[in-house]
Design a binder for these strands. Structure first.
Length: 700
DNA sequence: GGTAACTGGGTTTTT
DNA sequence: CCCAGTTACC
């Protein structure tokens, strides 16, 4: 019951349109001026028809920016710009594909000649792959998933005195964060530690050495992590011999969600489009929610000011939401950004948003599901209703309540497919087929066997590293193992060696599943589901050209649920969507429910340490609110049953979210629901009034 | 020596 | 629910 932005939730040639962005089409007066301009309003048309100078589009939520961008691409194509000279960088790969597909349709191109586009990382992968030789990379380098990067960090941590418990040492997850932040913000380790991880500073030297070793090891094994992809792309662009050629390959570069760019990505863009020539950037400062990943809306502001002759256009007419929803959004819009874009509705006033006050989280779940079902009764498909949460576990009780009352739902975000143990095992095994010197994968695969713990795994890995091809020569590998583990090991390795002889990726992947299934059955609970997951995954390998590139694609664009692999969606399947607010970006629903409007949850306690943290939380709420077309529900439980006390003590919280100021609250209709903390029928009395209780009359 | 099984403490957001 | 530390077994 987990999922993420499934293809079904995006518009396209097929599938339901739930959660899909509305078209952003003006409701009045279609325009003339070429097929690309059909149905655009003036502001959108100006975006589409702009020439070659730098263009910055400040596009509020729901203002039809996708439509404008699609029209712009179509306009460029119809003007004679060859498709392959247009590059579109977006936040998700699906957004890119959808936009490029629509643009090619609009421009009347056949599907085979399409502009190039995708996420920064996906595009980086394509470009780095094409230039692996000059970068000194093996031809088929592997792409490390973030989880694998953390595993590698974890293994190496011990060697750098960072795993003891004498003093608090950074965990592998923290190390990965720090590493990534250094790369993406282009700041030295000392800076990042001092600014963002002060408690790690005593370990600075060890961390630095660990990072050096981590880099060296990746390089030695032909592995690139997400950060490396950007770093290598940037290096190519900065190279005197290749750089110019690479950036001149594109006449036009369009970048979506520019407020979420980090410094490394911003540098890449600058190198792709020197002085902003042929550059279009689209963004909304009020929707900047990736500060934790090193992103900064500074780049959007600098784009407006920094490129010579840049034209800034605003999209403020909102085609998605009713005015009363937008009133809330405008009230929540952080101060500085409020000056730049104020939304007004194209669709009339609509219903007043509802603020639902409940006793606690249990009552909240009950009230929320009541409202979901009431809306459903009134004709709103479950598909067109979403529960948007700050952190994945905030929906725990709601999920329970939905299940108990038989309401189907799908959860997006949260635990990711690629992070589940059995999928990691599968990927490790797959990697070994093409690279028998992949230490990390060996380690993972070996640990899967009964009787193989850290020590034996290490010894066996050492053997594999010393061998020319440990998979080819698996009998000697088995011979080097301790007697008790030889049996299971030899059967796995024999099967694996055999899997390698499969020429096509499909059969190879299936052979891998067959090899792993028994091991996984022994190791983890929930066997049938896990094997089915892997079989589905293997099924998707059939269309790939080779196993290695299939694995790299998988690392970059993972199916976020088994649902993604299940084939075309069933049309009448109707379910409520539960999503993190981050994953909900760019989507919309008729009805949006936002639970846990309590300080410590929204805003989340982790973010309260700094003013910037709180501001980002506010923008996140802004994003959540602007997902709603017609009905918006915010829920404030008055008591949270866990760790409220600790939070109160530390931060002196008000009971409800600090974002529900009087100005914001005024925009809502307030509902009290269920029993308050005082129980039903509680009476407020004059101070000093006492009720007499006769405890003795029975004993007279 | 090495691994498995048990127990207790902490849990954001994602390309 | 996942990770680290502890203890009990081979």
């Amino acid at each position: 019951m987990f999922a993420s932005l499934a293809p079904a939730s995006l518009p396209g040639p097929s599938g339901p349109t739930c959660g899909a962005p509305s078209d952003g089409a003006p409701s009045d007066g279609a325009r003339t001026g070429g097929v690309w301009a059909d149905g655009l309003d003036d502001a959108q048309a100006a975006v589409a028809a702009h020439g070659d100078g730098p263009l910055v589009v400040l596009a509020g939520a729901g203002t039809g920016k996708t439509r404008a961008l699609v029209a712009r691409v179509a306009h460029l194509l119809s003007r004679g710009v060859p498709p392959e000279r247009v590059l579109l960088l977006t936040f998700t790969r699906r957004a890119a594909e959808e936009m490029l597909w629509r643009a090619s349709q609009l421009a009347g191109l056949d599907g085979r000649r399409r502009p190039f586009g995708g996420t920064f990382h996906a595009v980086a992968h394509r470009i780095v792959s094409a230039h692996s030789e000059v970068l000194g990379l093996p031809k088929g380098f592997g792409v490390l998933t973030p989880g694998e990067g953390a595993d590698l960090m974890e293994i190496m941590r011990a060697d750098f005195e960072l795993s003891g418990t004498r003093t608090r040492a950074p965990r592998s997850a923290t190390l990965v964060e720090v590493y990534s932040r250094c790369v993406n913000t282009r700041r030295p380790l000392s800076d990042v530690l001092a600014g963002d991880y002060p408690w790690c500073r005593p370990h600075q030297e060890a961390v630095g050495e660990l990072f050096r070793a981590y880099t060296a090891r990746k390089r030695a094994q032909g592995l690139l992590d997400y950060d490396d992809l950007l770093l290598y792309w940037d290096a190519l662009l900065g190279d005197p011999a290749v750089g110019r050629h690479l950036s001149e390959a594109y006449e036009h570069v369009l970048v979506d969600e520019y407020q979420d760019l980090n410094p490394l990505q911003a540098e890449i863009v600058c190198r792709l489009a020197p002085r902003g020539r042929g550059l279009t950037v689209v963004g909304d400062e009020a929707q900047a929610v990736y500060g934790f990943r090193g992103a900064s809306a500074r780049h959007l502001r600098e784009a407006v000011l920094g490129f010579p002759g840049a034209l800034a256009l605003r999209l403020e007419r909102n085609f998605r939401s009713r005015q009363q929803v937008l009133d809330v959004a405008n009230a929540l819009r952080p101060g500085e950004a409020a000056a730049s874009v104020t939304l007004y509705a194209d669709r009339g006033p609509g219903q007043r948003p509802l603020l639902v006050r409940c006793a606690d989280a249990v009552a909240e779940a009950r009230a929320l599901v009541d409202n979901v079902l009431a809306a459903h009764e009134a004709g709103e498909r479950l598909n067109d209703q979403a529960v948007l949460v700050r952190a994945s576990h905030h929906s725990d009780l709601i999920e329970l309540e939905l299940s108990a009352r038989g309401v189907p739902y799908r959860k997006y975000g949260g635990l990711r497919f690629l992070e589940t143990a059995h999928v990691k095992d599968f990927i490790a095994a797959g990697r070994l087929l093409s690279n028998p010197h992949d230490e990390l994968s060996w380690y993972r695969l070996l640990r899967l066997h009964d009787g193989v713990g850290p020590t034996r795994a290490r010894r066996l890995v050492a053997h594999a590293m010393a061998a020319t091809d440990a998979l080819e020569d698996w009998p000697s590998m088995v011979a080097s193992a301790d007697p008790p583990v030889r049996g299971p090991l030899s059967s796995t390795l024999a099967l694996l060696a055999q899997a390698r002889t499969c020429a096509a990726p499909g059969p190879a992947a299936e052979a891998l599943v067959a090899t792993l299934a028994p091991l996984i059955a022994l190791r983890y609970p929930g066997q049938p589901t896990r094997t089915k997951d892997l079989q589905r995954l293997a099924g998707s390998a059939r269309t790939a050209t080779d196993l290695r590139s299939w694995l790299a694609e998988l690392a970059l664009d993972p199916p976020e649920s088994t649902g993604d692999l299940a084939g075309p969606p069933v049309l009448d399947e109707d379910y409520v969507v539960i999503s993190t607010i981050h994953s909900a970006k760019g989507l919309e629903w008729g009805t949006v429910h936002v639970p846990h409007m309590v300080d410590g949850f929204m805003p989340i306690d982790m973010a309260l340490g700094s003013a910037e943290g709180v501001e980002e939380e506010q923008r996140l709420l802004y994003v959540a609110v602007t997902r709603a077309r017609d009905r918006l529900y915010l829920y404030t439980p008055l008591r949270m049953h866990y760790h409220r006390r600790a939070l109160d003590d530390r931060h002196g919280f008000a009971p409800e979210s600090r974002f529900l100021t009087d100005d914001v609250r005024r925009l809502f209709e307030v509902h009290e629901t269920g029993r308050g903390p005082l129980g039903p029928g509680a009476v407020t009395t004059e101070p000093g009034h006492r009720v007499a209780v006769d405890l003795d009359h029975l004993w007279c």
